[in-house]
């Protein structure tokens, strides 16, 4: 059984990562990853929704009929997102000011519906929850990395405003990496998001190919890019 969970973990975090492998959920990805903190916050909020929606949908999977399954999933996901939205607004208002506009975007994140269809609708509750968690963490990981790249290149800082997200105890994370940095606005703007995602996907593929050729006894003679 633990075998399943380790496979889910490996798949979700790396092999089948929502952003870097499936390239899903790009709308929220581009919108929020101007800083690492925003990426982290969005990722965590999405994770919460993913876990809840996967478990909920898994628990009712026998009752849901083929014909109305998509509206049912959508309604459930939209409800969960709204719940997260109002909760953060009420009880973590400072965070809401950072993420507020984007929380609603989770509804439009096809990865959430995608996991519901592809996994939760066919698997028991616990594995589904695990899948949601790991997919969410993989998404969080991706968003944080993208945010970090864009933030470092764009403004020369890292995890700016982390205290808003994680509390004052975490303000030590806020780094100013490049003093007197003029700023490279392109990276903060949407095109920078696409560039960062593109380069990171390319990087992931290079890593995958390297590890594949290490694993294989006979390395492929072909050059990486030709």
């Amino acid at each position: 059984m633990s075998n399943i969970y380790s496979r889910i973990t490996r798949d979700s975090l790396w092999n089948n990562n929502i952003v870097f492998a499936q390239t899903l959920g790009l709308c929220p990805t581009m919108a929020v990853t101007s800083t690492a903190t925003n990426g982290l916050g969005m990722g965590l909020a999405t994770t919460a929704v993913l876990v809840a929606s996967n478990m909920l949908i898994s628990s009712i999977r026998h009752a849901v009929s083929e014909e109305v399954r998509i509206p049912v999933y959508i309604v459930i996901i939209a409800t969960l997102v709204t719940l997260v939205d109002v909760s953060i607004n009420a009880w973590a208002h400072d965070l809401y000011k950072v993420l507020g506009l984007y929380i609603a975007l989770i509804v439009a994140n096809c990865a959430v519906l995608g996991r519901a269809e592809a996994y939760a609708a066919k698997n028991p509750i616990l594995p589904s929850g695990m899948d949601g968690l790991m997919m969410g963490l993989g998404f969080t990981f991706a968003l944080t990395i993208i945010g970090a790249v864009r933030e470092i290149l764009g403004t020369g800082t890292l995890f700016a405003d982390a205290h808003l997200l994680l509390g004052p105890a975490f303000s030590f994370m806020e780094l100013k990496l490049i003093p007197d940095y003029k700023g490279f606005l392109l990276m903060i703007l949407p095109p920078g998001g696409f560039l960062a995602v593109g380069f990171l996907i390319a990087g992931k593929r290079i890593i995958d190919r390297r590890s594949a050729s290490v694993a294989e006894p006979v390395p492929a003679a072909a050059p990486a890019i030709s």
């Binding site: 003029k182 700023g183 490279f184 606005l185 392109l186 095109p191």
Partner: peptide, 8 residues
């Protein structure tokens, strides 16, 4: 264009 929007 890249330069213009990045370093106005």
């Amino acid at each position: 264009v890249m330069l213009l929007i990045s370093f106005p």
